[in-house]
């Protein structure tokens, strides 16, 4: 370890790893399996349903595509995608899911929706049971091996949707901040981090392409704003304000990770951090609130893969 700007650092593959932690929060998560007649339509349904779901600061949920599924991996033998959704409470998650599935998957040609988590009756939320009313009395249900599915008549046949969706206590807000010598190099590192983190099951990276350029702090000089730009990481404000950027840094990208468990988020953070350690990355840190808000603290020093050092 060496003394950094004002906190300890670790050198890892030539990149300074700041001795700090990501502060993550407990959220309610759900997994939907969406299938369609072709991988293309499954992808369209998945992307549409998880659109505008980057941060609960301004969206009803945080969501993303967890995995592309082959026809052998889905309940109805068709190609599909696995989607993860996170919100602060089960009620808000149910509202978001009903709206998103109702507007973006029910409407999408050939799609069906299945639950992707174990059902605990006390923790499950109603999805098909809420959407069935669109059938206007012509909806029917089928119970297969104790699981109920709703069949809602639509113009290309039927929309099939599982009645209940299981939920778990997940973790949102895992993150790393990649400080690069140039914008290009920082983005290259961020892209590698995203690719690596997405290999970990049970996580999503809800921001565009998995990368955030507008890191935020809580509050603003404007009373109506809940969050505003994190000026300490803005290169253009260096010299004008207090800066947390390492010398020579021209761009910072944040990787935000949500997952079905702390273990999944930690593993994805580890994969992201180690993949981001490339030439041109000067430092990697993480965002937190001093440990006062989120119960989960993911220390970067525990993420360093020493086998590659």
């Amino acid at each position: 370890m060496e003394e950094g700007k004002d906190i300890l650092t670790i050198q890892h593959q030539g990149v300074k790893i700041l001795d700090t932690f990501a502060e993550a929060f407990t959220v309610t998560g759900a997994r939907l399996i969406v299938t369609a007649e072709s991988p293309g339509w499954a992808d369209i349904a998945g992307r549409t349903a998880t659109g505008y779901a980057s941060s609960v600061i301004g969206c009803d949920a945080e969501a993303g595509i967890e995995k592309v599924l082959s026809s052998e991996e889905t309940p109805d033998g068709r190609p599909g995608v696995s989607l993860l959704f996170f919100a602060f409470s089960r009620d808000s998650l149910q509202k978001a899911l009903v709206n998103r599935v109702g507007q973006s998957i029910l409407t999408c040609p050939t799609t069906s929706v299945f639950n992707g988590l174990a059902i605990d009756p006390g923790q499950a939320i109603s999805l098909g049971g809420a959407l069935r009313f669109f059938g206007d009395g012509y909806q029917t249900s089928k119970v297969v091996d104790k699981t109920r599915y709703w069949r809602i008549p639509v113009m290309d046949g039927e929309f099939l949707c599982e009645d209940k969706i299981g939920t778990v206590k997940g973790v949102a807000g895992g993150n790393i901040l990649i400080q690069g010598e140039t914008q290009e190099l920082a983005l290259e590192a961020a892209s590698r981090a995203v690719e690596s983190a997405r290999q970990v099951p049970g996580v999503i990276l809800p921001f565009p392409g998995g990368v955030v350029r507008s890191g935020s702090k809580v509050g603003s000089k404007y009373k109506k704003l809940k969050a505003s730009t994190n000026y300490e990481y803005c290169p253009t404000l260096r010299g004008a304000t207090n800066s947390l950027l390492e010398p020579g840094v021209s761009a910072v990208y944040e990787i935000v990770i949500d997952g079905l468990s702390l273990e999944a988020v930690t593993q994805a953070s580890k994969a992201a951090l180690n993949a981001a350690c490339i030439r041109g990355v000067l430092a990697i840190g993480a965002g937190n609130y001093g440990g006062k808000l989120g119960p989960h603290h993911i220390y970067l020093r525990n993420l360093v893969d020493n086998s590659n050092s």
Binding site: P75, D76, G77, R78, D156, E158, L160
Partner: peptide, 15 residues
């Protein structure tokens, strides 16, 4: 009614 591919049938066939 129509010719179509009812998705729920695959659930029964899997069962």
């Amino acid at each position: 009614s129509c010719d179509y591919r009812p998705g729920f049938l695959q659930l029964y066939f899997s069962r």
